[in-house]
Design a protein around this nucleic acid. Structure first.
Lengths: 339, 339
DNA sequence: AGCGTTGGGTGAAACGTTTAACCGATCGGG
DNA sequence: CCCGATCGGTTAAACGTTTCACCCAACGCT
């Protein structure tokens, strides 16, 4: 494997000149520049990332860790998110170290290890929440990072997030446009930032439409199919005048639970009762009926996150460090009565 | 950040001694050993991975790349696979660099880059196929790697794979046990190694049960929902005497297509016609009816792959370098007439 | 003419480890 | 008693870069 010394000898210059040419970091004459480039090409030289990192104190790697979904559920965005990040990072000659964290205690420990062993120059976080210990640690340690998701409002750090509230407002608006007035909502337990955002969007949407909300229309539960299933059954057992004609779930998985409950009760989804989810999981379009849902622009977010992080690492102040993107309402048959 | 020199000074020894103690690579007296460990602990020292790598010519990282699923489909195993690999690798102080490759041409280029820039010590491959250019390259370049999946029989390299044929034999056996004799199969186009394996399992299973196969019972097509949908329609249009009472699909996605086609034709899945898939995608258990399918032990495979790769990197000869694991048949209502 | 400046290039230090070579002291065997 | 081996430790070279300090020649300006 050719080193910078081989290239220097081949081109008849010093190793310093080779370095300057290759990094474009100092002016050299066109003639020598050409010779160096030619020599490097001929020898198939590429700088050793390790040696480069030692001197420049840069590993040229970014860490991304996620929490495995509870209950063995699949992380539907991981695939797309990793892909978009890796491609964006590659443009800056950076790579992504991927790591799932299990318990919350070793979560912070993992970040500390990676930083102290100089394995990464920065981090991407996702699934953030209030009082997120990872964010607290990274802020305290002064390690560059960008989060996909928000946290405490008084913590100042760069993030990109999906506007779940706006998404849910869109969903309500869509249902109201179809004539629904009694719309129920299946939420997550309190304490989830994104969960509360989505709930807020529902409440605001209802208010904007001038609709009052029956207290029985909001149920909370863990992110599980069964929870959606049970919630729908409870809704349908309400007296006719209070019974919802549409159900919005905070996630597709729970929406599927609701759809299955309705089907088991002999209620036609879409025709009699509309259902809306959130995520656009791959299966959503193949469900019977296909599920209306909110799609997060994951690929855009991955790219944006990396761009912001690269700016951060380069020491530049990014023009915007809080980015809120709107999810897209994908309308399918689960909210279309005429199919 | 404390360096090895700080620790040496604190413990009153040379940096060499510190290194020997920390790496357990030479015998030192119990007394000094204790002092060094104490000093390291006190200063919160951890060796810089970069510096260590430069000298030892090791990056302590492994590369894993996958191809994004065609047609925007999700990679259902990525999540679990990455997780199990990262955990297994961490036990050896190794990390995983994740990278999706897009076109086949830059696929090999990506491997070359990573090797030449000394960013990784070895690779994990998945989605392998006949004449896989990545395998060819890595073999030629002498780079350590372990594959999840097989390739040309005359290429000698370590791999772990799921025995798709055995899985399909199990599926056939299960259906035969339920009284089915006319069983159809939805396959992938020719040229896919795992696809042909699964088809072979179906053929063998049928033969073992003494059942003859109508040529109309095997249809091929791309990995798409629509393909499964159309195939099921074709099967159901056969004259009653030749019409299958059970359909096995080479993947869950195509099985879902078949299920939807049957439902749209007013045929009760599970009751009238049984359907079996392959993968156990997360949604499989929530489908109506829930889908009988073959589950690959992904977590075990991830761990096994890393263990083999670590052995390989350590220069030890692994006791077994070809591992074939059987998928598990998960029986659900799509093949149970009595629900 | 003298002098600062600029363009184009070199020499060598530094980054933080690992490890080969070496060294003194102690000890056991012939 | 002497020689080789062993134990416990040190010195210093090496890994392949980046980059600071410096140098020389040419040049423009007073």
């Amino acid at each position: 494997m050719a080193t910078i010394r081989d290239v220097a000898k081949e081109a008849g210059v010093s190793i310093a000149t080779v370095s300057y040419v290759l990094n474009n970091t100092k002016h050299v004459s066109e003639e020598t520049r050409r010779r160096v480039l030619e020599a490097a090409r001929k020898l198939g030289y590429r700088p050793s990332n390790i040696a480069r990192g030692l001197r420049a104190r840069r590993s040229h790697a970014l860490g991304y860790s996620w929490r495995p979904m509870p209950g063995g559920e699949i992380n539907v965005i991981l695939d797309t998110f990793l892909e978009s990040m890796a491609i964006a990072a590659a443009r800056h000659d950076y790579h992504i170290i991927a790591y799932p964290t299990t318990t919350e205690s070793d979560e912070v420990q993992f970040y500390r290890d990676l930083v102290e062993a100089e394995r990464v120059d920065g981090f991407v976080l996702s699934n953030t929440n209030y009082d997120d210990p990872r964010i607290r640690f990274l802020l305290d340690a002064g390690v560059p990072f960008v989060a996909f998701g928000r946290s405490n409002p008084d913590w100042d750090f760069p993030w990109v997030d999906v506007d779940g509230a706006a998404g849910m407002r869109k969903a309500v608006e869509h249902l109201v446009g179809l004539g629904h007035t009694r719309i129920a909502f299946i939420a997550w337990p309190e304490g989830s930032l994104s969960g509360e955002e989505r709930l807020r969007g529902y409440l605001e949407g209802m208010e904007a439409a001038g609709l009052s909300i029956d207290e029985a229309w909001v149920l909370r539960g863990e992110m599980r199919h069964e929870v959606g299933y049970e919630a729908a059954r409870v809704f349908m057992r309400l007296p006719a005048a209070r019974r919802p004609t549409a159900i919005i779930a905070v996630s597709d998985l729970m929406a599927v639970g609701a759809m299955n409950a309705l089907a088991d009760m002999g209620i036609r989804v879409g025709h009699s009762v509309a259902v809306v989810g959130f995520d656009d999981i791959p299966m959503a379009r193949y469900l019977r009926p296909p599920l209306t849902t909110l799609r997060q622009p994951i690929a855009d977010i991955g790219e944006k996150v990396i761009d912001m992080l690269m700016k951060h690492l380069a020491g530049e102040e990014p023009e915007q460090c809080h980015v809120l993107v709107e999810p897209e309402l994908v309308i399918r048959a689960s909210t279309m009565p005429d199919t």
